[in-house]
Design a protein around this nucleic acid. Structure first.
Lengths: 193, 193
DNA sequence: TTGCTTAGGCAACAGATGTTGTATAATTTA
DNA sequence: TAAATTATACAACATCTGTTGCCTAAGCAA
């Protein structure tokens, strides 16, 4: 297993290989669905030896983890949510961001596959939890930040996931407005906004 | 694939085979951990042909799903939570039940394995959602029952999961007391209790 | 540049997976 | 009881999986 860190100087060969693998992986997933994609598929498309794959990732699930983490992080940065403090408007934007990300991820993988969605969930929730905990701590609330952040991040992800599966779902914005008070109640920060 | 329903008259051969598989599966999991268990393991222990396994379950993940669903359902029935209406005390008991179930499940599988936990999560949350939605509907709240039940069930599971991973965790009862208001706020039913 | 370090290519392996076809035995239905 | 249905056993299969050892070549540091 080679070094994993994202923000570190990497051997250009490593960078190249991982990019090829990630790219081939996304292609294969959108084409055949996550379940049907084998490590063989990925490495053949990428023009990388199969053994090399295992030098970077234990299995295809780890590669999915890695890709999702990276994509969601980029999404948060693009929307400048990773560098701000709590406000109702920011919370609203966060809900929208999660809804759109989850919806987009799931659309790449019909029919719904629990394994795939679980891995997306784990990565997204981890970053949500971290972000919300920061917001709570900075706002100096009286609740336990970790506990509140846990409840809130799970609630947000759950609502986003349900929305994304809704056959005739409302526009993201109105859905966000609808659930905002519910989500905010987990943070106990309404008054400090 | 044979018929799945739980509460139906089953061919005794099917019942026997599934019981043997479930039993062998649980043995193998507690002994080697979920990841390391192969379909071979299970069928050899059970004295069942490997091909027969695939006549009942698509893979070992489906068997885990099945087992967990069954165990959690039994747990709820034992605590008589599946046949009651909302009250703060019942909600408290529910939180405790989930904490203990999750903790017990995870203890069977060290070190923590996301795949395993994700499958447990999916099954537990599905039943939580159903139960909470019933509570909300029976209480005749003004919130959307589905949305509130989603937020609450995810929050409950998330908190239980975090508690179960806490190295020096407080007793279940005091943890339940601590998070109860947070959980209840998702239901918007505090006044009707 | 030279030499050291390390990633990737290649081949081969044992093992697991999922599937198929046929035969046998258990169960149900009439 | 006799005939039907259907679950299981068994064997064999192509495929995928993780892993290993050896070799080549790309990158880095003196």
């Amino acid at each position: 297993m080679l070094s994993i860190p994202t923000d570190e100087i990497l051997d250009p060969r490593v960078k190249r290989t991982r990019n090829l693998l990630e790219q081939a992986f996304m292609e294969a997933v959108t084409e055949k669905g996550f379940q049907a994609v084998s490590v063989q598929d990925i490495t053949e498309r990428a023009g990388i030896n199969r053994a090399t794959f295992y030098a970077h990732f234990p299995d295809k699930y780890a590669l999915l983890d890695h890709s999702v983490r990276q994509m969601f992080r980029q999404e948060l940065e693009k929307r400048m949510l990773s560098v701000c403090t709590f406000s109702m408007e920011n919370l609203r934007q966060l809900v929208i961001a999660v809804c759109e990300f989850v919806s987009n991820a799931n659309s790449h993988c019909a029919p719904p596959q629990p394994q795939f969605e679980s891995l997306v969930e784990t990565q997204v929730k981890a970053q949500l939890q971290e972000l919300l905990q920061n917001w709570i701590e900075q706002a100096g609330s009286d609740v336990d930040p970790k506990i509140a952040a846990t409840a809130a991040s799970w609630a947000v992800y759950g609502l986003a996931s349900q929305w994304s599966h809704d056959k005739k779902r409302p526009p993201v914005e109105s859905f966000a407005d609808q659930v905002l008070p519910l989500v905010a109640s987990n943070l106990h920060l309404m008054q400090t906004a």
